[in-house]
Amino acid sequence: MIGGLGAVHLKPSVGGAGETGLAGSGASAAGDGATTFAEALGQAASKTVGTLQNAESVAIRALSGDADTRQVVDAVMSAQQALQTAVSIRDKIVSAYLEISRMGI
C-alpha cells in the first residue's frame, strides 16, 4: 500500500512484489517503465505535477459549487503526499550532490 503514493510509482503496480516504496524505488526504477534513473525521476516528477494539477482543478470546481466533497478531499490528500514526497526526494538529491561536491578528488 505504501507504494500507492499516487505520485511516485517508479514501477508499474502490476508487478506487485517489487513495490517497496521509496526505499526501493532507486533499484526498482530500472523496470519496464524507464530505462535510466533519470527517466524514472522524470516520470515521477511529471506524475507529481499531474497529481497537483488534478487537485487544483478539482478544488476550483468545488469552489464553483460543482464537485463531490470526498473527491476534493482525496485529490488534496494525494497532492499533499505527492508534494511532500517530491520535496523529500529533492532534498535528498541536493544533499547528495553537495556531499559529492565536497569529496576530494
Partner: peptide
Amino acid sequence: LISMTIDLLRGQ
C-alpha cells in the same frame, strides 16, 4: 458525514 469528510483535511 459531509463534515467528517471535510475534517480529513483539517488539523494537519
